[in-house]
């Protein structure tokens, strides 16, 4: 049994605002990602899922907590000491166009990490080696080799996202963090990219942290799911367990709110009232109690800890919904 590839322990991120206020974007977030696993992070805007992604990559500095990658503590490693690890962890962003320098050819964009980082033997890569790798990557993401000599604006959104994936894969990373990689794409194209992520994981043995607001997409791609609300994980477990028999009322509401392309016979959905509260002044006790249909007095007084249920999932609720178990 190998250890987790990525371990997050009690991650906390505060943003200082004016007038001494602070915004807690992440509050005590902990999870493990095992090699070969896909952890889906879902939640609505402002739940901290993107901040979490950036913190895992050290693009944003943590306030406190510990991130361990492959057994090495990277949470407060200097930029210099971090550099060899950068090739192991790569990121794919939502905006496929903004992530690519419009004035450079695709070949230059993808080759850049290959030129910057040395290969496994610590040698600089030769020109032909880079060319071979570029062709291999194009093949991997399903683009013709001729695409290498073109510019980003000549491609559609889906093709650009393929280019971004190729760039992320150039250095053969172990972990890819994908932040809403398909949410800007049309549905018909979205399915292609979701499939590409699945195929690449099987072919290359990749591990993903997949951040998305679309539950159906997350369900399709993830082996485990973490549901986030106002900076904290409220439910974490196997995808099928969490999405078929949700235990946290927020997960229930989130699933119920997704409009599905089917004819519904009964409109028995859990409609949440109001909006997500401001993370500057989160509610006392359980942060979901202001919108929870099952809230009781205990919920506003005491914040529930993330605890283990018998089926192996973690849930942060005083009264987890057990009816489906």
């Amino acid at each position: 049994m190998t250890g987790p590839l990525l371990r997050a322990e009690n991650l906390r991120k505060d943003y200082k605002l004016s007038r001494g206020q602070k915004l807690r974007a992440l509050d005590n977030v902990s999870f493990d990602v095992m090699p070969g696993e896909v952890l889906g992070l879902v939640g609505e805007s402002g739940c901290g899922k993107s901040t979490l992604g950036r913190c895992l990559l050290r693009l944003t500095e943590l306030s406190s907590g510990r991130i361990t990658f492959d057994g090495q503590d990277i949470s407060f490693l200097s930029e210099r000491a971090l550099r060899p690890l950068r090739r192991q962890i790569q990121m794919v962003f939502q905006d496929s166009y903004a992530s690519l320098n419009p004035r450079r050819r695709i070949a230059d964009l993808i080759a850049e990490p290959l030129c910057v980082h040395r290969d496994k033997n610590g040698c600089k890569r030769s020109g032909p080696a880079i060319q071979a790798r570029l062709a291999e990557l194009m093949n991997l993401v399903g683009l013709p080799v001729s695409a290498l000599t073109r510019y980003p604006h000549e491609f559609s959104g889906g093709q650009r996202q393929r280019i971004n994936i190729a760039r992320a894969l150039a250095l053969a990373p172990q972990l890819v963090i994908a932040d809403e990689p398909v949410s800007a794409l049309d549905v018909s194209v979205q399915a292609q990219i979701v499939n590409l992520f699945t195929d690449l994981r099987e072919q290359l043995g990749l591990t993903y942290v997949f951040i998305a607001h679309d539950l159906a997409v997350v369900r399709q791609i993830s082996t485990r799911v973490a549901v986030m609300y106002l900076g904290a994980v409220v439910e974490l477990g196997d995808t099928d367990t969490v999405l078929h028999t949700p235990a946290h009322p927020y997960t229930v509401a989130l699933i119920s709110a997704v409009p599905e392309p089917v004819i519904r016979h009964a409109a028995s959905r859990t409609l949440l009232h109001g909006d997500v509260p401001s993370p500057i002044s989160p509610p006392s006790g359980c942060r979901f109690h202001t919108r929870c249909p099952h809230a009781e007095t205990l919920c506003s007084a005491k914040a529930p800890d993330l605890h283990l249920l018998s089926d192996g999932r973690l849930v942060a609720c005083h009264f987890p919904l057990m009816e489906n178990l």
Partner: peptide
């Protein structure tokens, strides 16, 4: 039909691959 198929389902068995439409509009 293809558009409806390419939406990942939220219930029922998960397909290993989503039926997708090749190319783009």
């Amino acid at each position: 039909a293809a558009l409806l198929d390419s939406i990942p389902p939220l219930t029922g068995p998960r397909p290993t691959r989503l039926p997708s439409i090749a190319g783009s509009p």
